[in-house]
Design a protein around this nucleic acid. Structure first.
Lengths: 249, 249
DNA sequence: GCGCTTCAGTAACAATTGTTAGTTGAGCAG
DNA sequence: CTGCTCAACTAACAATTGTTACTGAAGCGC
């Protein structure tokens, strides 16, 4: 196995361990998965709505977005994904994609054949538990986004998103409280994620700067006072389910 | 086992069969689950945010809502649930509830101990597949709601919700194209589901009546022309994943 | 019948958000 | 350097949505 493959699997194991304590044999089964490396340019789709994939995509490097498009071409981003995550794990059980996945940045992906995942679960049935759990946490994030989109104002909405990104990226070592994190998306893309027009995204960012809540430039975002922003934005990290406490089924 | 229990399990088996073809032994395992019957008055919570439940709730009769509340007490309904569904199935793997479940109408529930579900899966490992699939379909609904909330206008949003309810209720025999379905919620509750104020819900319903799209009175809703409303509302039922085609894992 | 509560519905006004149409500056290919 | 593209940003205005404060009708306990 190449070094890149080993790195990709390290990230997956690390990510899964954030939410479930893996047993040794489960970890071994994960590390034995075959990977097919591929890269995509920013903006490219790597899975499309209505596809019937026969593999899942493990993100190795870069950011990805999950999105749907209305009949008149308006895009809604449903979630953002980072290294170590498998955004289309659900395709293992739902044959037809109901959304698309796209590269937000230059993106390195490792494809894992469904057959290999199924075989790993057959051989080690308990492996299904952490994987199921990953898909349940995705669902918990959608629920939170729904609440935020339906009931918070524009500044709170963005503040909530920034807090979520800070915590999720910290968990995989891609953010710190002192230096923030790389935030490689445009204001238009951010609008697609929060359901606002680009103009209103800009207004809201200006408001947040006037309130001295954040610094965002050169593709890097820093939250000035995490507790304060979390408080204003109704951000309670319970929904991230980042405690591996219950590994047992 | 009482007749009520047998009925509840019939509904569950029927519901699961809408999305996955069960094998005989899987169906037997489901039907062997122990149930604890309970009823709730309209408005009562039956699972609360931050609870750590040791059982799941199978809805037997009535409607339930899944919701979150902001720190200033604004409610956002995240999904609506009907007989045959287990809205808190995810609590089997996520120990802490990140939302609450409430009775929208008089509600009959059958609680199933987590231990019994775990034992059934241990005995019949393939049973995990249809259950996992149910939680994935919940997630697919959240995704669609996100797209609808972020990118459709008020009439489309409500139209989309009505189309979804029509199809989901048809699938369990609680709706028909000719007579519509019981819709036992207030305009304020509907607003909590779509993220609008009650006044704007009323405005939007009046618009839909003027456009001759629906009839809604005496707690019953009828869509005048399903194809037309679905078309206007960008409703594409793919996301409901109502095809049991792939049962195999 | 008589209050009381709840819900649908309305009007007037305020606040938020979207649309259109720009300017500016940075990066980059040639 | 020059022109091109893209992203951030802005102003003016329009459209949508929320807020407040009502009315009227239905159900219900007494």
């Amino acid at each position: 196995m190449s070094q890149a493959h080993a790195d990709a699997l390290d990230q997956l194991v690390r990510k899964v361990n954030v939410v479930t304590r893996l047993t040794e044999s489960e970890e071994r089964a994960l590390r034995a998965l075959p990977l097919i490396a591929k890269t995509f340019a920013a903006g490219q789709d790597f899975v499309r709505e209505h596809d019937q994939p026969d593999h899942c995509a493990l993100i190795v490097r870069g950011w990805a977005s999950r999105y749907k498009t209305t009949s008149v071409g308006r895009r809604q981003i449903l979630s953002l994904h980072f290294p170590g995550e498998i955004p289309d794990l659900q395709s293992l059980l739902l044959s037809t994609m109901d959304h698309s996945l796209a590269a937000l940045t230059e993106l390195a992906v490792a494809f894992i054949p469904h057959a290999a995942v199924r075989a790993a679960i057959q051989a080690e049935p308990h492996l299904a538990v952490p994987l199921w759990r990953l898909t349940l946490i995705d669902a918990a994030l959608y629920r939170e986004w729904l609440m935020v989109m339906g009931r918070l104002n524009a500044v709170q909405h963005m503040g909530h998103l920034f807090c979520e990104l800070q915590m999720r990226l910290e968990a995989v070592g891609l953010a710190s409280r002192e230096t923030g994190f790389d935030f490689p998306i445009t204001q238009t893309e951010l609008g697609d994620a929060v359901g606002m027009s680009p103009v209103h995204v800009n207004r809201t960012i200006q408001d947040m700067r006037r309130l001295d809540l954040i610094t965002w430039n050169q593709g890097r975002l820093l939250i000035h006072n995490f507790e304060d922003l979390a408080d204003r934005s109704d951000f309670d990290p319970t929904y991230l389910h980042q405690s591996p406490s219950i590994g047992a089924f």
